[in-house]
Design a protein around this nucleic acid. Structure first.
Ligand SMILES: [Mn+2]
Ligand SMILES: [Mn+2]
Ligand SMILES: [Zn+2]
Ligand SMILES: [Zn+2]
Lengths: 136, 136
DNA sequence: TCCTAATTGCAATATATTTGCATTTGCATT
DNA sequence: AATGCAAATGCAAATATATTGCAATTAGGA
């Protein structure tokens, strides 16, 4: 689906700025920080302002369209959140409910692993416990 | 072991500032951010300067005495790195080498899980791949 | 087309962290 | 114990990152 319809589906107003920002994030094959998102957006839409980028990152996050990754570096990174993409689960030991997570620990480790020369191929991450209903 | 000997073991000069900073991190039962580490250090050693805290956090990190955690919030958090404490592994599929990690993804998720009312009891995190030797 | 709330740009502000530099200090060596 | 010197510190200034108030603009439904 194209950026415009994705925004419509989330009941977000369609503005050139918002479309550009989401497009930049969606079409990047690497995770980007706010600076990079601003810079690339400004290349496509020179009049765009950093505040607009920050504000839209918040809105897109809240709408669940993007994910925020906290890396080793000092600025947060963002990536598109595609349904059906790689993800992990929280699993309730009582009722079996499986809640998908929008967080993958690998994203924070890629730098570190590269430094020690380790080439990851698979990983496993699962959280077990009790969901809200079953903890009561 | 006491803070002074830990520093000596890592060939770090022993200064009142460094001792205080490490003590604050070591004796806290929660992970602290740089501000909190500065504030608590300043309570014990009023003359200490924020720059000194930042510089020492870097040095202690490099020496492997503390771990840096990247949380959802805007500032990094730190905790002591105790040998034998909870940790995860990187595992080489060829030679079987198991490398311990000083990173636990749970630390970044505790806030998020609490918000959705999930009470975690166990978790699993493992990375598989090829170590430096075996990738060649 | 009109209306209104949402969005934007801009400048000011806030917060977190880094850096240059002069001074002080830990500690190895005499 | 005195000396020498690299390492560490304090301080102020600089950077980097993110937020906010406000007036002007704009999207999109009525
Ligand atoms: Mn799933
Ligand atoms: Mn182990
Ligand atoms: Zn994953
Ligand atoms: Zn863990």
């Amino acid at each position: 689906m194209d950026v415009e319809n994705i925004l419509r589906q989330s009941n977000l107003k369609i503005t050139p700025q918002r479309k550009t920002i989401l497009k930049v994030i969606a079409e990047s094959d690497i995770i980007l920080d706010s600076q990079e998102i601003y810079q690339e957006s400004a290349r496509l839409l020179p009049s765009i302002n950093p505040s607009t980028v920050y504000r839209n990152l918040d809105i897109l996050l809240q709408s669940g369209l993007i994910c925020k990754i906290n890396t080793q570096e000092n600025s947060a990174k963002y990536r598109i959140r595609e349904q059906g993409s790689h993800h992990h689960h929280i699993i309730c030991k009582k009722c079996g409910t499986s809640i998908p997570l929008d967080f993958c620990p690998m994203e924070e480790l890629d730098n570190k692993l590269e430094k020690i020369g380790f080439t990851p191929t698979e990983h496993r991450f699962e959280i077990f416990g009790y969901c809200q209903k079953c903890s009561k």
